[in-house]
Design a protein around this nucleic acid. Structure first.
Length: 427
RNA sequence: GGGGAGAUAGCCAAGUGGCCAACGGCAACAGACUGUAAAUCUGUCCUCUUCGGAGUUCAUAGGUUCAAAUCCUAUUCUCCCCA
């Protein structure tokens, strides 16, 4: 049952670094390992999915995965990879974020499979009764300032400044590892490569304070092939929460991956086997235009994060919005189909009478519907050829809507650019 | 506490009396090309606009001047060095 976890990570491109001995340990016995999640938002984003997948593979390899939500560390703020001091979250927000993330994590792991059932822990539970004095005596005493100062996360901030709060972060996180090692027999911590410094502070603490040995491995920072940050779309962060990023948009995010990125993503974000991936890549190369990889990727991830039916509607919507048939296929849709296609697309309601007396498109798109922030912006966009109504490009800045452009006698489809849709409901 | 450097649009960064809504780069958005890709090219990119303009900016508050991002004064904040 115990498959080689590290091997699995390697071929998927998910292994960045590991402490010597980690691979041997994991190949030899079933272990407990954990990954921490930072409660900076009330939903995990696709970026966090990397760590989620790491835990999933960990469990599939027969180990016991523990997801740690950072009720305590979230109060401090991790300086890793940040060039500026972070704002502290208030307690209510923090609690809300923790609850939401917890619910999402539960979706991916198996909590009922015997000895390697997953677990979720909150480090606030062991920090809430730990006094400051106790902490600096019992924990701080074991780690030297010199050691802490040498960390990249600290060095990078020497020029721009860093509060004591964030400086202490590595100790706080280090103690998590120590605590879990001591109380739950956790031997391995995993995380993104930016967490390396924090993680080894933990192993160091275990060595010095507990005279024990612990292991760690990190996953690479996922970047797009053009070097930019992974996980953002035109409309911002891509979240796992359907209310924050609709399944349609989520699906589109993956579908829009470049060829190069799709190869990387399909290894990281799906559970497809090495052979299946290789087969897909072959197929893809024969005719890159069909975007076999992107389709497989988007399908797999959307189904696992949302559901089969969410995937099907996203697929259908995509077919209609980007398919060959343009206005005809739109006008042939039943009202119900239309609405389901546009589920998750911003909608505005407008009275029919308003349109019938003639509504200048510029005013309509800005002041009336808020699709554009101002008339000037709407005007510029139209002039630049970036606005379509019912998939027909609006050529004339002075165009006046008359109420004749209704689909199903009830809807107007406004398109900003190629990929941003708005549905106007006329009543 | 002393000394030094600095604060310009989302970010980086030029500008050191008028030609400045402020060079350039990045990011972002749109267009062309394409495969809803990449690369490339083009346009937009402080706010509003009847596209003629109008309004508000260069840490903050005052001041000098016909005229200030640029000079002066005070204040706030940041970094570095010394104590």
């Amino acid at each position: 049952m115990v498959r080689n976890f590290v091997e699995e990570l390697k071929w998927r491109g998910l292994l960045h670094d590991c402490i010597p001995g980690t691979e041997e340990l994991l190949a030899k016995e079933s272990c407990s390992g954990y990954i921490g999640f930072d409660p900076t938002a009330d939903s995990l984003g696709v970026g966090n999915l990397v760590q989620v997948m790491t835990l999933v593979h960990f469990q599939r390899a027969g180990h016991k995965p523990i997801a740690l939500v950072g009720g305590a560390t979230g109060m401090v703020g991790d300086p890793s990879g940040k060039s500026q001091e972070r704002n502290l979250l208030d307690e209510h927000q923090l609690k809300h974020n923790l609850d939401c993330q917890k619910r999402q994590l539960e979706k991916f792991l198996d909590f009922n499979c015997g000895s390697n059932s997953a677990e979720i822990v909150n480090n606030f539970d062991w920090f809430k009764t730990f006094s400051f004095l106790d902490f600096i005596r019992d924990v701080g005493k074991h780690i030297s300032i010199n050691y802490m100062l040498a960390k990249d996360s600290v060095q990078n901030r020497m020029g721009s400044g860093m509060s004591f709060t964030e400086f202490s972060y590595q100790l706080v996180q280090g103690f998590d590892f120590y605590y879990l090692w001591k109380n739950k027999g956790v031997k391995v911590q995993m995380g993104g490569s930016d967490q390396w410094g924090n993680i080894v502070t933990g192993t160091e603490l275990i060595r010095r304070k507990g005279s024990g040995e612990a292991f760690a491995l990190t996953t690479p920072l996922i970047k797009k092939s053009d070097g930019t940050k992974f996980g953002k779309s035109e409309s911002g962060n891509v979240w796992l929460d359907a209310a924050k990023t609709s399944p349609y948009r989520f699906f589109q995010f993956w579908l829009n991956a470049s060829d190069e990125d799709a190869q990387q993503y399909i290894r990281i974000f799906t559970l497809l086997s090495k052979e299946e991936v290789a087969a897909l890549e072959n197929e893809h190369l024969k005719d890159p235009g069909r975007r076999i990889l992107q389709n497989a990727l988007a399908k797999d991830v959307t189904i696992r994060v949302h559901s089969e039916s969410a995937y099907l509607s996203a697929l259908e919507a995509s077919g209609i919005l980007f398919g060959k048939g343009t206005t005809e296929s739109l006008s042939q849709l039943s009202e119900q189909d239309l609405l389901s296609v546009f589920e998750g697309v911003p909608q505005v309601e407008v009275a029919k009478a308003e349109l019938e007396k003639g509504f200048p498109a510029v005013d309509f798109l800005s002041e009336r519907t808020g699709i554009f922030a101002s008339k000037g912006e709407a005007r510029k966009m139209i002039a630049g050829g970036g606005v379509s109504i019912n998939k027909i490009r609006l050529e004339d800045v002075a165009y006046i809507l008359s109420g004749k452009e209704l689909l199903n006698n009830k809807y107007i489809l406004v398109q900003k650019g190629k990929k941003n849709y708005f549905l106007v409901k006329v009543t």
